[in-house]
Amino acid sequence: MKRKLALSAVLIAGGFAFSSSAMAETPSAAMLGYTCAGCHGTNGNSNGPATPSLAGASKDYIIEVMEYYASGERASTIMGRIAKGYTKDEIKAMAEFFSKQKFVPAKGQKFDAKLAKKGAKLHDKYCEKCHAEGGTSSEDDAGILAGQWTPYLKYTLADMQAGKSHVPKKMKKKMKKMKEKTGDAGIEQLLNYYASKK
């Protein structure tokens, strides 16, 4: 009788432990998302000057970028080290959390109106097809460019041009074309345009 009781107690305890740890494997989307706030702002809206906002980005976009960071296919200072700390499920949950937040354009970014005007034209010509609605849209898993912190955009484009970060095929082509036409001035104009979008 005593043995039987003890055994069933073990079974119950064991079963409980198993189910709770199986359930416990992946923290909730909010639990994961909240840990990023120290660098990316509460709910993924960054206060800058350089760390990008994550709010409103598409789920697949975040997953892809995090995977590139973890594998080293995307250059970074710190994100590669951090991205390696998460399972696929955790990255998925995190991505879901940020995709559901509302993107708030960066506040107080300076820009030159003349350069921004030129940048708008360049955007229409080279970027709008994927980064739709003036770079404000995250549809089709495009990164939000308008109102994003521009130092981050600058670093990202520089790394892509230097071959340090993965670039989608179409973007590679367009970037090459734009560089041939405008040199580095084009990038500066584009950044001014994105900074001008409030």
């Binding site: 120290g38 350089a50 760390t51 080290r81």
Partner: peptide, 28 residues
Amino acid sequence: SGGLTPSKFDPEMRAREEQYAHSWFNNI
């Protein structure tokens, strides 16, 4: 996961890290 800034000095990456340090401060 994790770890330190690479020990090999890269001025561009160190300048970015400073920008991210100040972003870290503003955001936290």
